[in-house]
Amino acid sequence: MIHVRDLHLSIGDRPLLKGIDLQVERGSVWGIIGPPGGGKSLLVKTLCGLFTPDRGSIRIDGVEVCGLDEPALVPIRRKIGMLFQNNALFDFMKVWENVAFPLARLKPDLDEAALRERALMRLREVGLAGSEDKWPSELSGGMKKRVGIARATMTESPLVIYDEPTAGLDPVTTSKIYDLLEKIRQSTGATVLAISSDIQGLSTFVKNMMLVHDGQILFKGPLPALQECEDPLVHQFIRGLSEGPL
């Protein structure tokens, strides 16, 4: 589904992604971990064409993303549902309008009642029944995340990216959110990339892991292999040790 080769990205004159190689099979579930500022968010944003890389190649379903202009990116972006790290809820829209928005864009012939109906169904699934007519600013952090998740999965796109779906949430909400992500994944069969700094929680949900640090992938592979990884930085990071290269 995703093939990334030798991806380099710099902003200004700062190199931020330094040679990323990656292959994600259709239907697989990947966790992305790594120290803050390592380039995880940047990597997933580059995948949907929000940043233009210096060189390298990104192919999604065989289509080269790099070098496309905004109109040409439309069909690719329609395949991707994304939860942003800051949720990116549109604060000029009510909760249900936020959730319905991607669908309204995809299917312009749906009328408002049908859109609202579908949005309310999604909101019930993420446990937010009754919040549909609130504004995003009236919600707690966990509720905003869930609205973001509802919006990202609204069009049941084949690739879903969650950037920090549980950051800043308490353990109970966290495990509820992972249950929710798993439920949605099972019903849609989507390919999933999930960024998190909470390795334990993430491990309950994903089958594969990659560790991004300083614009490079230091480890990628099936979850059990992560524990055996010899790289000193990976070793330190996944065990949360204070001694080490980090």
Partner: peptide, 14 residues
């Protein structure tokens, strides 16, 4: 700064 513009672009909206 709240990524809403990125959010629009990711939804294929100019």
């Amino acid at each position: 700064i709240t990524e809403q513009i990125d959010g629009l672009r990711a939804l294929a909206i100019d």
